[in-house]
């Protein structure tokens, strides 16, 4: 199995100095990888760097064998899906939120409708289709945020604490749904978590970060 992502001698600098330093990391194609570590370990920083939302101070990230600097940022970002820690939905109906990335890609309207409806169904939120995003519960909003990324059928899915601030029942349900969906999609997935249960149930691999470095 080949690596979709290859990281070599990567350093990310933020205001407080170097916050991430990874000498070597390969993320295998089609695998689900959990990023674990305490707060401030650099998990979100790594996801943002992989989404090309943070520029490396030095080092290299290769995607599908190509150095990222040689690929247009927009073309690359249109091959990934990002879900940040909070749902960050727009003040619009659920359908429009889920359709957002497809509209950015200027897909035809029937194709957008078909794909959005399919993913609303798969995530069990079809009944919320016309509801305003501001009227959703935390669990519902998180599902909409996931649908918004999954509908893009990305090559690389980046999930930053997808179960954060969910109650126990919502957490368990979403975990079960993702456990079912991710292997079917065969999308390379990287998610951050603090929960050993999430790692056990969802991940094929685990990477531990501590103070910006891989610790195991």
């Amino acid at each position: 199995m080949s690596a979709l992502i290859e990281i070599r001698d990567l350093k990310i600098r933020r205001q407080q100095g170097i916050v991430l330093e990874i000498a070597r990391l390969d993320i295998e194609r089609g695998r689900v990888t959990a990023l674990v570590g305490p707060n401030g370990a650099g998990k979100t920083t790594l996801l943002l760097a992989l989404a090309r939302l943070l520029k490396p101070a030095c080092g290299e990230i290769r995607f599908d064998g190509q150095p990222l600097e040689t690929v247009s940022t927009l073309d690359y970002r249109r091959r990934i899906g990002l879900v940040m820690q909070d749902a960050l939905l727009l003040d619009r109906p659920v359908f429009d939120n889920v359709a957002l990335g497809l509209r950015f890609r200027r897909l035809p309207r029937p194709e957008i409708c078909r794909r959005v409806d399919e993913w609303l169904e798969r995530l069990g939120i079809s009944s919320l289709r016309s509801r305003k995003a501001t009227q959703l519960s935390g669990g519902e909003a998180q599902r909409v945020a996931l649908a918004r990324a999954l509908v893009l059928q990305p090559d690389l899915l980046l999930l930053d604490e997808p179960f954060k601030s969910l109650d126990e029942i919502s957490h368990a349900r979403l975990l079960a749904d993702l456990k079912n969906i991710l292997p079917q999609m065969n999308t390379t997935t990287l998610f951050t978590t603090h929960s050993t249960r999430d790692v056990r149930e969802l991940a094929d691999e685990k990477i531990s970060l501590r103070s910006g470095k891989i610790s195991e």
Binding site: A51, L53, R77, I80, L82, M84, L100, F104, A149, L152
Partner: peptide, 23 residues
């Protein structure tokens, strides 16, 4: 973080600004 989220969903700079104006 909304800006980062929009860019992470594949928005061009102009599309991102359009969404922020709308929001």
């Amino acid at each position: 973080r909304l800006r980062l989220q929009l860019l992470g969903l594949g928005a061009s700079r102009f599309q991102m600004v359009q969404q922020l104006w709308r929001e």
